[in-house]
Amino acid sequence: MVGDSFINWSLLSLSAPGWGGLLLQGFLSSIEIAVGGYALGLLLGIGGASGKLYGGPLVRDLLECYTTVVRAVPELVLILLLYYAGTDLLNQVLGAFGIGTVDISGLMAGIFVIGVVQGAYSTEVLRGAIKAVPAGQIEAARAYGMSPFMVLRRITLPAMLPYAIPGLANLWLIATKDTALLAVVGFSELTLVTRQAAGATKAYLLFFCAAGALYLALTLVSNVFIGMLERHARRGFAEQR
């Protein structure tokens, strides 16, 4: 019993009697949500950081509330709240505008939930990075008569990237791991699929280790790309530390 409960490798084979294919599918949807949520978070983050730095007092305070709540409440709770309330609310808002309700697919709900959480994190990361850009560079750009949007596009964004990349890279890694929390609302990503496979076959240790290996592989591969990106963004900077 001890033996075959975790050495039965055939359970991992890719085609039907093995669960490997299903695990990979779950892994793919985890990556999909992570990418979508991360992108949405980045959009929200750019908006949030700009609002926090350049917006009026009201905008700033509202954004402060958003980032405070997300940073003080566990992701698991936020995910439950957003999953049930967020989609409900969106439908009611759309209904109020007369657009009619939309059918929010599981994938979209997952991306939305992860995105809103990530949005608060990236707001903070980007705000810190923008603040690290020497004020003189922005003033110089303005003196050249650049429009605010052009300043953002040509000066602020490129100049802040080296400061933002380490933080944003961490957020990407967090996004990939946060997708596991969607298992709690019954979303078929890697962790839930793993648990189902484990439950159906009783090979808990094997499947959880396999899923762990997949997550770890994603992190390690990401780290390679992050390293390349960091070196690229830091070119022209004095070597630090």
């Binding site: 908006g47 609002g51 350049y54 917006g55 009026g56 429009s147 605010p148 953002l152």
Partner: peptide, 9 residues
Amino acid sequence: KGNGMKKTL
């Protein structure tokens, strides 16, 4: 700049 930002937002 603030106005531009608001539009972007």
